[in-house]
């Protein structure tokens, strides 16, 4: 009952240039999605905080739908259906950015909402009572306070975004997983390839979470030590 499998990374590593380019594509996708998703998430949160009921209901519905639909469905739907419906067609990369930004924006908006809601009302009233304006309060009080609370879930969401970029491979965007699959077809070495893919994701994500933990611990010590 021995496993006759012999690991051979050598043949796979011949494709390192392909991997490097794929890493570039994945990072470009991830960074663009994170920026667009966060910005859109903030807009959704602010619109939802709007007191006018119809706006609130509309945005709530949009957020709930985006959160519930599998991101792959969103991706495929935008890639194949949008051209039919609107005549507007996007390439794979653009589709990936649009679909995954929309998807993550729903989660970012929830994170912003939870962060701002967790601020004690009294601290905002204290700011009003010293005569601060709404923008001053956002900039000086609620913004920084919310950011501290938002930071950990925000980092988790960014990690999810990075991992979700591999969905774009489904519409032939040459990101890491997609290229990995191409290489494994050619080399018949799927285990080695997937191991390398996993290692690459680890190498991207671990430093990020490590940095986040260090920053969070630092601020905890500073304010609540």
């Amino acid at each position: 009952m021995q496993s006759g499998y012999e690991w051979d990374f050598g043949v796979v590593l011949q494709y390192r240039e392909v991997f490097l380019r794929a890493i570039g594509t994945t990072l470009a996708l991830a960074v663009t999605i994170i920026i667009c998703g966060m910005a859109l998430g903030l807009v959704l949160y602010l619109l939802r905080a709007n007191t006018w009921r119809p706006v609130y209901l509309l945005i709530t519905a949009i957020v709930e739908v985006l959160r519930a639909v599998p991101p792959l469905v969103l991706l495929v739907w935008i890639y194949y259906c949008m051209p039919i419906l609107t005549g507007l067609s996007l390439n794979g990369f653009q589709t990936g950015v649009l679909a995954l930004s929309l998807y993550s924006a729903a989660f970012y908006s929830e994170i912003f909402r939870a962060g701002f809601q967790s601020i004690e009302k009294g601290q905002i009233e204290a700011a009003f009572s010293v005569g601060m304006t709404r923008t001053q309060i956002l900039r000086r009080i609620t913004g920084p306070l919310a950011f501290q609370r938002i930071f950990p879930p925000l980092v988790s969401q960014c990690v999810l975004v990075i991992k979700n970029t591999s969905l774009a491979g489904y519409i032939a965007v040459a990101e890491i997983l997609y290229q990995g699959q191409q290489i494994s077809i050619r080399t018949f070495r799927p285990l080695e390839v997937l191991t390398i893919v996993a290692l690459i994701f680890l190498a991207i994500i671990l430093p990020l979470t490590f940095l986040a933990n260090v920053l969070e611990a630092k601020y905890r010590k500073k304010y609540f030590g």
Binding site: E125, A126, A127, S129, V130, G131, P144
Partner: peptide, 24 residues
């Protein structure tokens, strides 16, 4: 306007039961 109201509030200062200091 909220700016005008802010200006008026500056002339009165409030001390709250729960202190409401800014923790950061």
């Amino acid at each position: 306007s909220s700016g005008e109201i802010s200006r008026q509030r500056r002339q009165m200062a409030m001390v709250f039961q729960q202190f409401n200091l800014w923790p950061h």
